[in-house]
Each structure stands twice: as C-alpha cells, then as structure tokens.
Design a protein around this nucleic acid. Structure first.
Lengths: 305, 305
DNA sequence: GTTTTTGGATTAGCTGAACTAATGCAAGAG
DNA sequence: CTCTTGCATTAGTTCAGCTAATCCAAAAAC
C-alpha cells in the first residue's frame, strides 16, 4: 500500500467510529466533503470498498470492519509507545547497569557520597550479568568489563583490575602460605561467573600459570557463580579466593582480608563507564560520571598507598 | 501524536534501516533534503530525537531504535492485513455458514444440482452452531434460523419449519401409536441443540403442550445435541423423535420414516438466507441464492403433494 | 598537506495533493 | 408536500512538503 495514504487511514477510523462522514469531519476539523473524498480515494487505492453507502447512512463492509478494528489497535499501540518514549525522555531517574559483584562490593559502600553530593539525583542500580544493550533494555548507562558489544557508545575507562589470592587472617594463621606452591594444601575458592560453561576454573588456571606454580589442581576448588560470593567465602575463612582489586581492597585495608603472596597480575580487565552517545550530555549522566571518576581517583590513591 | 506526520514515520523506518538519509531518499524517490527535513520535523513533533548526527554518519538513539522496531512490525502487519483483504475480494470461493443438522439432512442431498447448474462455482460449507457474525468471521453468506443478531444484513426467507413426531416404520409396527397420549409408553428422542442449558427438553414440552397431552415426562428421552443425530436415531428405530420438516421430509417421502399422528405445529421458525448488504449483488452470491430459492420451491411442492 | 569526495543541513521558491465552499440529490421526518 | 439531513461531486484555492542549489565539515585519496 502507498504510504502516502496513511493519514487517510486515520480519517477512516474516525469515520468508522461514527459511521458518519459529517461527524468525523467535525471531529477532525475538516469539511464533510474532505472526508468523503479521502474515503473514496482510500477505497480506490486499497482496491476494495470500506463502506456501503445508503440514503443518508453508512455501513461498514466486512472488510472495512476488519480493517477498522486492526487500525484502532494499531493507532492505540503507536500512541502508547510514543507516550512512553516521551515519559522516558522526561524521566529524571537514571538506570545504571552494573555487574552484581562490583555493585555489592565496590559501588554500594560508595553510593552514600553520591547522594550527599546530588541529593536530588534518582539512581536505579540494575545488577545483572546480561550483555549490555542500550537499544533493547531501558538502561541509561552501564559499568562494563573491558568491551561493549552493542554498537557505538560513549565510553570512559574507570579502573583497571588486578588479580591475586586472598584469605582471612585467621585462615592464614592456621595454614602455611609462604609461596604460591603452598596452595596445593589448602581449599581454593573459585569464581566462575565469567567463563562458566567453557572453562569454569580459567581464573585460577591463568593466575597459577602466571605465577609458574605447577601441580595445583584448581578443579578441587569450591565454586561460586558470583565474584562477591567467592570473596564472602574467603572472608569467612573457607579458603583462598582469587580477588579482584575493586572487590577486595576495602576489606584488605580494614584488615578483614590479607594477601598471602606478593604476586599480583594485571589481567587486562578495565572497568568502563558506558552510555549511549546521545545521553552523554544529559546532566544527571554527567553527575554520575563525574562522581564515579572522583571515587575512582580516591580509590586509586588508597590502593597506591 | 499528530496523524498528519504518519507518512514521516514510514520515511523514518526506511532511514533507520539504511542509517542514511541519502540511501533512504533514493529508495523513496525523494531528495536527500526532503528526508532530512521530514526527520527534523518528525523529531520536533514527537518531542525527542531519533538520530544522533555525526560527521557524515547517523546513529539511532535508544528511543529511535525502539520506535523503528515497533514501526517495522506495524507496517508489516498492516501490509499483511491489506493483502489478505485484497485476496478475499478476489476470491471466487463462497463460504456459506449453515446449522449442521440442516447442512447434512437438507443441503447435502441437493448440492449436486448446484454443481450441475454452475460447474465453476466454488462453495465452501461451514457447518456450526455459532451465532453468525459477518464482521468477525470470514463468511460470505449464511442460512440462519429466524433472526440475525449481527447488524444489518440482506435477508431472504427461504422456508418455514414445522414440527411433529416421527419414527421408523418398524418401530411403529412394534408399538401402539394411535394418539399422542401413547407417547407415554415409548422411548422419546430429543434434540437439545437449541436450548441446551436453559431448558433441554423445551422442544418436546412445547409440542406436547400444543397437542394437549398430559403425563408424558420428556425428560426420560434420550437426547442429542444435534438435530440430525436425533433423526438418525429415529431412522434406526430407537424411538420417536421430533422432526423438523426440512430434516425429515426426504425420509418420509422415501418411506424410511413415518408420521404416526396428524398433529403438525408451526413453531414459528423461518430459515433465512443472509449475507452482508454489500455482497448482495456479487454474482456467485446471486447464483447460490437463486438456486436455494429454486430448491425451496421444489421442496415446498413435494411437501404439499 | 592538499584535494576530492561524501553525506547531512539549510534555504528559497515551487507545485500539486488535499482542502473548502457551494451545489446537487434523494430519503425520511414533520 | 415541504423541510431537513447527510453523502457525492466539482471548481477553485492554498499551504505542506518537495526540489534544487548551496553550504559545511569529516574522511578518503593522492
């Protein structure tokens, strides 16, 4: 169908509602003749008639009735979507997508200072491991690991991420942990959130390889599907976990966790802030980003010290 | 949203597909400037932007992407429906809705002569007891009982319908059936297709009342939910059924059924031919109607004789 | 580093699609 | 029988949306 006749379809819906061209014309601020002409042209273009004309009354043909019904829903849905999109534009709530472990162990403890700085800002944290997709999901911004698959977006690097074993002080006292080779004797705690199916123990395997430790079979480790749970297990003295800096730094500084070895490896992961290019200049987005950058700077200082 | 911008939405879908105004313009046989203007106006009217403009490339905003997806489906559905309606118009197949019992016992035996008269005519019989609704169902015409609830339609009376007991000759021999009062002693066969829930034995009750017979409890009858099954049961000697003229006349003439009593009551039912006003003049509809009227005339003669 | 190409933005001016206004017609109400 | 009502039709008008031409700036080509 010729898309030029689309407005006629709207006229048709109104005329079908009233079963009167005169009333439809009134509703649409047109003359009766205009409506009559539009319907005639529309019928011509569609190739079938929509109304049966009588003396001074109209009746829908079966085809006309079916089309009218379809169009009524179509227009309602369209109006609904547009309304929704407009509300979204006006919304002051920023939805930030974050990995769950990063959310609980790094973001949460720091959120207080964001509220202090911008009391009016409404931030909604959406913690999940799904691939970020700004088109599909109603997300305004995200913190992601390393790369973003979804099209082009505005990204800002926030942190780099180091990996090393951690355990509780109590656990360290009860077990000999002088060199990485001692890991043979102790329970390992694994986080398989990243390579769950392909190679669940990849994290430990990579670290042990870099530390040139042989003979440790990480597959005997207990395994969690979220990084924060693995840290939690280490905190409660269950064994040795592989910690990522941002997830364990606070606990190390407070003495609840310790690093038994010196070996620390950069695993190439970067935490990025990301948002659709278009949202880049929205004020609340800027506020969140600036705050995140300040927190990262503060955090880097703490790590360095 | 202003319905005047509807054609712009189509332009938008094409532009979103190509992520290029120039290519969209080419597809739509417009100039690049026209597309650019349409999108600008559309964004203005919607109140949010659809594309992020770069150097010489475009990107959809999250809102634009969602709108484009919705519109793509919307247009596809609309085109689909219109195509379907066009095919319907071109169709030479006439779908006739009939009550199942009338279809099997009256219409079927006579259809042969319709094919003889109009070998090219394609008739599809839709036998069901649903209320006829030309708008909702893909029906071109119908044979209905007495009245039509669905809006205005073109109707032509075909037959009137009389009601009286019938049984097989064998059954009549084995049972005394001189007056209606003798019905006390024999199995009754009931057809509850019309008043199933409210009053399943209404047909017998009404007939017995008109015949002024007392003391017969029709509720002991065996009951069928279709009129033709009740007749079938009578044919095979199961008992006495209440026959409607068009359903049993052929069998009576052939001697397979007989009327034990003289009492015949008009129950006010009329069989109507009905079709949407608009279809009234379509040639195949006319052919079917004319044939039906001829058959009815022939049938009336047979009944009278 | 300069030139060319490419693709979107913008503008003035044109044009025809769709509107109005006026009239005709025929059915049904009064 | 007359009046009212509501759709059809037509001639004439108007403005929404088009073209065409120009501008601009990034990126590709040289």
């Amino acid at each position: 169908m010729n898309k030029a006749s689309l407005p006629f379809l709207h006229t048709f819906v109104v005329a079908a509602k009233h079963l009167s061209f005169t009333k439809a014309a009134h509703e649409l601020f047109l003359t009766q003749g205009a409506v009559s002409q539009q319907i005639r042209l529309l019928e011509q273009r569609l190739g079938f008639s929509l109304f049966v004309r009588y003396h001074r009354s109209l009746e829908l043909t079966p085809m006309g009735a079916r089309l009218a019904l379809h169009l009524r829903h179509m227009f309602a849905d369209l109006d609904g979507l547009i309304e929704e999109l407009r509300e979204e534009r006006d919304s002051t709530i920023i939805t930030l997508s974050v990995m769950p472990s990063f959310a609980t162990r790094w973001l949460m403890p720091r959120l207080g200072r964001l509220q202090e700085r911008h009391p009016g800002l409404q931030l909604r944290i959406q913690a999940n491991d799904r691939e970020v997709n700004f088109t599909r999901d109603r997300i305004d911004a995200a913190i992601v690991h390393s790369h973003l698959h979804s099209g082009s977006a505005y990204t800002v690097p926030l942190l780099v991420d180091h990996v090393f074993p951690v355990c509780s002080p109590a656990f360290a006292e009860q077990n000999t942990l002088q060199t990485p080779a001692d890991l043979v004797h102790v329970p390992l705690i694994n986080d398989d959130s990243e390579w769950r199916f392909f190679s669940p123990y990849a994290a430990w395997e990579a670290w042990l390889a870099k530390a040139q430790v042989k003979g440790v079979r990480p597959s005997r480790a207990m395994s969690f599907n979220r990084g924060d749970l693995a840290v939690q297990a280490a905190l409660s003295g269950q064994g040795v976990a592989l910690g990522r800096t941002p997830l364990v730094m606070d606990d190390i500084r407070e003495g609840r966790l310790l690093k038994p070895f010196e070996q620390v490896y950069d695993n190439g992961h970067v935490y990025l802030f990301a948002c659709p290019n278009e949202y880049r200049d929205r004020e609340p987005i800027q506020q969140v980003l600036n705050w995140l950058q300040d927190e990262c700077r503060r955090y880097m200082d703490e790590v360095a010290q």
